[in-house]
Amino acid sequence: MLEITGLTRRFGSVTAVDDVTLAVPNGQMVGIIGRSGAGKSTLLRLINRLIDPSAGRLVFEGRDVGALTGRALRDWRTDCAMIFQQFNLVQRLDVLTNVLVGRLNHRSTLSSLFKLFSAEERALAIRTLDRFDLAEAALQRADTLSGGQQQRVAIARALMQEPRIILADEPIASLDPRNGKVVMDALRRINREDGLTVLCNLHTLDTARQYCDRIVGMRAGRVVFDGVPAQLTAAMVRDIYGMSEEELDQAETVTSTAIEAAPSRMAA
């Protein structure tokens, strides 16, 4: 159980996350929706502690993780793996090393520095990659893969951490719909098969409805909706986005055509 109580983060005079309270039971798949700038990303970064909260409490399994430092903080970060919109792989390293990077907190610094990963770790990396049909690409450089493949490598890296929670920050926003589906399927699989809690920022309502057990709507840093997909009425959508779902779809189409039209290296 991840309990968030009154979590707040201010940047200067701007309050990015404003008094957020949520309780997420283990194994739930939660979609967080809202306009860009609503504080979704900041919320996930606060949970992983890439950003420190200005106020509020963060408790996981009865352990206060809001004030950890040093070794304990790194352990907590290992427990809640992050997935990024831009995949954030090391482009010049091969896929295998990118996945093994997920083990860094499980081993000594010295052996890491010389890249001395054990046979077990390598085998585990291959097995994890194999779950997403990427074992054959293990020795390719990350930048030779398509966006969808890179995001699945990132998911494999996250799994190598042996985490309890997956925090996915707009995991499919840089992908075309087909690759987006493959990645969302992968996220649901690890949610169902490994029993991991998944917190996922999403910009498309359809995806959230289709994949998530629970949807959290945010506006201006505050939680304005929290319930199952069926409860997300047209009025609620208007409240979260400030526009109707049709208008939202339209705006969405405009942006996605813009994305497709732009020469994108992710689409290779």
Partner: peptide
């Protein structure tokens, strides 16, 4: 984490990953 038999099988299938 990974059994010896599994390890051997993976090694067999992806020798370059290990050496």
């Amino acid at each position: 984490m990974i059994g010896a038999a599994d390890l051997a099988a993976i090694r067999e299938a992806h020798p370059r990953v290990f050496r």
